[in-house]
Each structure stands twice: as structure tokens, then as C-alpha cells.
Design a protein around this nucleic acid. Structure first.
Lengths: 183, 183
DNA sequence: GTCTATATCGAGATAGAC
DNA sequence: GTCTATCTCGATATAGAC
């Protein structure tokens, strides 16, 4: 239910009522329960589709067998598009993380994030060994920063000032060069 | 009410009930209304204190009259401490932004963020003119990324793996150098 | 300043007619 | 597949005794 997703993203999962979802769909709230057995089922469907797609991006990037810098760049470039397509799902994840992650039903959320974390850290460590990344990089801390950074723009208003490629380029140049002019 | 703030940060403003707040305070929900006239008043008090402190940091950094790079570093270093002290308030702002910013009562939130934005952009532009920042930097886009990045760690669990100085250093070195080993 | 008790409202969900 | 009608619950907030 893509309509529901937009509402969840805009107002938060808990703050969105089934009546609002039904309104957006042009039916009454009771009729919604012919399509879904609960509000949480709607959220579940949205989140699962999102995480499956993101994980596919990460796995594909690793499977190229490229060097760490190229793998990370591939991850950033492909997953950014996926994140943009699943804007609503990501916003739900960020806004209502404590709510979802606390429920057994949504246990796959934690698992997916753990797999993503492992991929980033592995690439960092390999890059450090190869001498292409700074040796003093704290892999886990840097991962947490970067992952959350990647997730930021999707939270911004849809159809706003910057295109997805623009944002990706800004992020990548920040990632690899910082904001300084070259010496 | 610092107890309420912790709950708001952990569960979200709307998801936190006045009964939970009262429980944490060791009284019954009805008794809370002797101290506050509404749940929103509690949120209001927390958010105002936070934004006043952050704005003070930003203004002080600008008032040093230092060069852009130094001003930005001062902002990052001082405001990070302030953000950490107001962890709960910042989490509220991030989680329930659409809720708060939609209400006239919380109009000062938008105003404060506009002032912060103007300061970042001014420093970027000055640094670009002076040739110390990359000329191709999109000031507004970079600001949005960096502001949100600065706000990320505060969202992490309290008392966790990394100390505030550690996080600040990771952020600053990312900001000025990226993750690459020097050529 | 905290209690008991309660008013009022809006939420998610259900049953059965059409 | 959508409707009307309704149940049940938990939320914010209030009134007044102690």
C-alpha cells in the first residue's frame, strides 16, 4: 500500500490513523480490513520490501569482487537510488525505530542492519590493510556515521531542491576528499 | 522535567504517555497537572532550553571573528557538547519534527534552524572566496548534510561505545580530509 | 502536592447488511 | 469490496477530597 507508506513517512507510523489511510484510499476505515488484517501488517509489508532491495544492492556490490573503494562507491551509488525509491519505508525506519525494533515480528530489521554493518566494516578493514584508507580510521564508528549520513537525504522533502545524483556526488566527494581545497 | 525528556527521547513524544511520565516521577498522572498544564508544555520547555543553548554556541563562534575553517571547527566542538547535554531534546526534534513544526506554538523551532543555516552558509561562502574550501561546494546542500550529520550521534544510545570527543574527531577529520590516506 | 474518580475523546478493530 | 454501526481500550485532562 503505497498510499499508506507516504502517510507513515510524513506523519510517523503511530501518528497515522487507519482512518487517514482509508481517506487517502477513498474508502472508509472499516473497509481497509478487507485488504489488511492490521495496521502493523501494512507497515510490515512496506519494511520488508525495502530491506530486501537494499540488501540485494549490498550483496551485489560485494560480489563484484572489486577493491574496497570501488565496492563502497558502488554501494553508495546503487543503494541511494533504492533508498530514494523506498523513501517512505526509510523514514518509517528512522522515525519509529524503537517502536518496530522492539517487536519480535520485526526482528528481521535488526538482522538486516547487522549484515549491512558487517559489509561496511569488512571493506574498511580491507582498504586499511591495502593502504588506501587512513590507518587511524575507526571502522565501526565511521560506518555508523556514514550509514546514517546516507540515510539523511531521503528524509528530506520529496521533489525538493536537489536531485539524487547531486546528493550522491556531494556525499562521495565529502567521503573521499572532505571539504578542503586540494593543497 | 528531565525525566520526561528521557522518555520522549526514547519512545518519541507522542508515544510517551503522561502516565509513564508520572510513573517515572513516582506520582500519579493526575498529579502531574499540578506542575504542568499540558503535555505539550513539558515538550515546549525542553525544546526552548535546548535551542537557546545551541544558538548561543553558534553566535559565540561567529563573534570570535576567526577565519571560516576555525569558526566551523569551533561550532562543531562547542555545539557537540551542547547537543550531548540536550540529547533528549534533539531526539525529540528529529523524531517528532513534523508534529512540532506544524504547530504555531513551536514556531521558534523554524526560526532557530534558519539562523543556524545562515551561519553555516555564510562561512562556506567566505571560505570559498578565500580559496580554502573547494570552489565547487554547494553551500546549501553541504550545510544540510553536515547539520544532519552532526545531529546523528546524539541519537545513538546514551553511554555507549564512543565518547563525545571521539565522535567529534571522527567527524572533523571526515569533514576536512575524507577517508582517504594522504597521497 | 498528591490522591481518587471520572469526563471526553479518538484510536484500532469487528460484525453483518448490501 | 465497501458500507453502517459499534465495541473496546487507552489517551489527555479535570474536579474536588485530603
Amino acid at each position: 500500500m503505497v498510499l499508506a507508506g507516504e502517510l507513515f513517512a510524513e506523519k510517523g507510523f503511530r501518528a497515522t490513523t487507519v482512518r487517514e489511510i482509508a481517506d487517502a484510499a477513498g474508502i472508509l476505515s472499516g473497509s481497509l480490513y478487507h485488504h489488511f488484517d492490521s495496521k502493523e501488517s501494512i507497515g510490515d509489508e512496506i519494511l520488508q520490501g525495502f530491506l530486501n532491495d537494499v540488501l540485494a544492492d549490498y550483496r551485489a556490490a560485494v560480489d563484484t569482487g572489486d577493491d574496497p573503494r570501488a565496492v563502497l562507491e558502488t554501494i553508495v551509488r546503487t543503494s541511494t537510488g533504492t533508498l530514494a525509491r523506498h523513501r517512505a519505508a526509510l523514514a518509517m525506519l528512522q522515525n519509529d525505530w524503537t517502536y518496530f525494533s522492539g517487536q519480535p515480528r520485526f526482528g528481521y530489521l535488526r538482522k538486516a542492519l547487522q549484515e549491512i554493518e558487517k559489509i561496511w566494516i569488512t571493506q574498511f578493514e580491507e582498504g586499511k590493510r591495502a593502504g588506501v584508507f587512513r590507518a587511524d580510521l575507526d571502522a565501526k564508528l565511521t560506518y555508523r556515521l556514514l550509514r546514517d549520513i546516507l540515510w539523511i537525504p531521503v528524509h528530506w522533502q520529496p521533489g525538493n531542491q536537489w536531485s539524487t545524483p547531486q546528493i550522491v556526488d556531494a556525499f562521495l566527494s565529502l567521503l573521499f576528499h572532505g571539504i578542503n581545497e586540494k593543497p
